Simulated assay, not measured.
Amino acid sequence: MRMAPRILIAAVAVALTLDPAWAQAPLEADAKGYPNRPIRIIVPFPPGGPADTITRLVGQRISEDWGQAVVIENRAGGNTAIGAQAAARAASDGYTLLAAMDTTMVINPLVAANLPYDPHKDFVPITLLTKTMSLVVVRSDGPNTVKELIAKAKGNPGKLNMGAGTITSRLGALQFAKAAGIDVQLVPFKGSAEIGQAVLAGTVDFALDSTGTSLPLIQSGPPSSTKSIARWRVSTMTWP
């Protein structure tokens, strides 16, 4: 029996946070007519990825509801630590928000020494924006099933490149490789937008990527009527 052509490897969440000093006095802020000027939301990823897209959609709705401009600022790098640091150092006035995720608040404190922010002291949660899943993706001219991918990797030990973005995705990718018993090279990326392009260009043989970036490439890719066009399509793999 074949499963649906989507392989769940990891789940991540994106949430909005702000400085706790401002959150402790919401009534005072309301009395001052908050918000009375533009709001900045820091996204710790490059433009074009799922976190960036979701935050821009939410920012647009906030702007419409509150009548104030919402500025999206991309501060990628350091496994989201650069963006988190910028948000933590901003004024405690409620006008700088952070689109954080599990990597920012959970994984980084566990694996990174001298983290430039404290997830417990520097931020308080506002709301959960979304949850997403990751897929193992290949180009349409690559393996059609996980079994084929594993066989190809075992036949070429150490030669296949595997792309992944955040620490969460990298851990999931390494866990997949370990469970499959394959020797592949992990290629780290700053965000999903870069991963999608790398798969399309053949820079990596396969990748662990979010549905937000992968599915549009899968659904809207050009038809594989010729070999050259086929290389620009992405497909998910099914369990045998």
Rank of each mutant, 00 (worst) to 15 (best):
N156H: 15
S228D: 12
D209I: 15
P157N: 03
T130E: 13
G172F: 05
L18M: 14
A173Q: 02
I107Y: 09
L98V: 02
T127H: 02
I41Q: 05
S224R: 01
P188T: 12
K131F: 01
H120E: 14
V184C: 08
L97V: 12
I72D: 09
P46M: 01
F123V: 08
Y34G: 02
A180C: 04
A15H: 12
D52G: 06
A193M: 08
A201N: 14
V58R: 07
T238R: 13
L186D: 01
A207I: 10
P26K: 12
K121Y: 04
Q219W: 11
D65A: 12
A21Q: 05
R40F: 03
E28C: 03
L57A: 13
A164N: 05
A15C: 15
S169E: 10
P188Q: 09
M105H: 02
T226Q: 11
P157E: 05
N74A: 05
I182F: 04
T236M: 00
S224P: 02
Q60C: 00
T130C: 07
V138L: 00
G77F: 04
G77T: 06
F189C: 11
A51T: 14
A90R: 05
L18C: 10
M162G: 02
I9Y: 04
A113I: 11
T104Y: 05
I39P: 03
I42N: 14
V204G: 14
E73R: 00
P38S: 10
A10W: 13
F189L: 14
Q85F: 04
L135V: 10
G158I: 09
T104F: 03
P50A: 09
N144S: 11
M3N: 07
G165M: 11
I126K: 10
E28Q: 12
G196V: 14
M133H: 13
P216G: 01
N144M: 09
M105T: 08
L160S: 04
A113E: 14
V14Q: 03
D209G: 01
A153H: 08
T166W: 14
L208D: 11
I7F: 04
A87W: 08
V138D: 06
V71G: 02
N74R: 09
G163D: 15
G158K: 08
T168W: 04
A164I: 06
Q60A: 07
L171W: 06
D209E: 14
F176Q: 04
R56E: 14
K147L: 00
A21L: 08
P47I: 00
L174I: 06
P240K: 02
Q60V: 02
F45P: 01
P5L: 00
L200T: 13
K159F: 01
A177D: 05
A230P: 02
L115W: 00
A81K: 09
L160F: 06
G94K: 12
A177S: 08
A151T: 13
H120R: 11
Q68N: 11
E148A: 10
Q60G: 06
T132M: 06
P47W: 03
A180E: 02
I195P: 11
P109H: 01
T53Q: 15
T213R: 13
Q85N: 07
I182P: 01
N74D: 07
L115R: 05
E148Q: 15
L97D: 10
V136Q: 03
